[in-house]
Amino acid sequence: MGKSMARAQTEQAGEFLAQTVQTLSDYLNETTLYQIYHRCIEEFFTPKKDTWYEDSRAAYTGKNAICFHEPAPASLKNLMASLETEYQSMREELEYYATDYRMKMVQPRS
């Protein structure tokens, strides 16, 4: 009887720990994706130093979205243009996670 009780408690503890690890993993993944979205992707399109900005009409005109406030060397323009497509793809993919994360943080816990 004692062994079966110990086994049941061990199984319960194992299930609890597995669920806890999964919950923490999900939280950390959401938090990490949210941080990547805001610290990397959004900062690419709107940097703090305002060296360049995003032209919101670029999607309609077919031009690159990154515009510089001051004249920039062609090498920098080419580099930004080459990165922009991948950043835009990542932005679209991660935007869902960022929105979902914000909604979870706003909603009261039940």
Rank of each mutant, 00 (worst) to 15 (best):
1 M>S: 14
2 G>Q: 13
2 G>P: 09
3 K>E: 07
3 K>D: 05
4 S>A: 10
5 M>G: 15
5 M>H: 13
6 A>G: 00
6 A>N: 03
7 R>F: 07
8 A>D: 11
8 A>R: 13
8 A>T: 10
9 Q>P: 00
11 E>R: 15
12 Q>R: 15
12 Q>D: 10
14 G>A: 02
14 G>F: 00
15 E>F: 08
18 A>G: 09
22 Q>R: 13
22 Q>Y: 02
22 Q>A: 12
23 T>E: 11
23 T>W: 12
24 L>N: 14
25 S>P: 02
28 L>F: 06
30 E>S: 13
30 E>W: 12
30 E>L: 14
30 E>N: 15
31 T>D: 05
33 L>N: 12
33 L>K: 15
34 Y>W: 12
35 Q>C: 08
36 I>M: 09
36 I>T: 12
38 H>R: 15
38 H>I: 04
38 H>G: 09
39 R>I: 01
40 C>V: 05
40 C>I: 05
41 I>M: 02
41 I>W: 03
43 E>C: 08
43 E>L: 06
45 F>W: 05
46 T>N: 14
46 T>R: 13
48 K>E: 03
48 K>F: 03
50 D>W: 07
50 D>T: 12
52 W>Y: 13
52 W>F: 03
54 E>K: 14
55 D>L: 03
57 R>K: 11
58 A>H: 06
58 A>N: 01
59 A>S: 10
59 A>L: 03
60 Y>C: 10
60 Y>T: 14
62 G>M: 02
63 K>W: 04
65 A>V: 01
65 A>I: 00
65 A>Q: 02
67 C>A: 05
67 C>Q: 12
70 E>F: 14
70 E>A: 07
72 A>P: 00
73 P>N: 03
73 P>A: 09
74 A>V: 15
74 A>F: 08
75 S>W: 04
76 L>K: 09
77 K>G: 09
78 N>H: 12
78 N>R: 13
79 L>T: 08
80 M>L: 03
80 M>E: 00
81 A>T: 06
82 S>K: 04
84 E>S: 00
84 E>G: 00
85 T>P: 06
86 E>R: 14
88 Q>V: 08
89 S>F: 04
89 S>T: 04
90 M>K: 07
90 M>T: 02
91 R>H: 12
91 R>Q: 13
91 R>A: 09
91 R>L: 05
91 R>P: 02
93 E>G: 05
94 L>M: 07
95 E>V: 00
95 E>H: 10
95 E>D: 07
95 E>A: 11
98 A>S: 14
99 T>D: 10
100 D>Y: 06
100 D>E: 08
101 Y>L: 01
103 M>D: 11
105 M>K: 15
105 M>A: 12
106 V>E: 03
108 P>W: 02
110 S>D: 06
110 S>R: 11
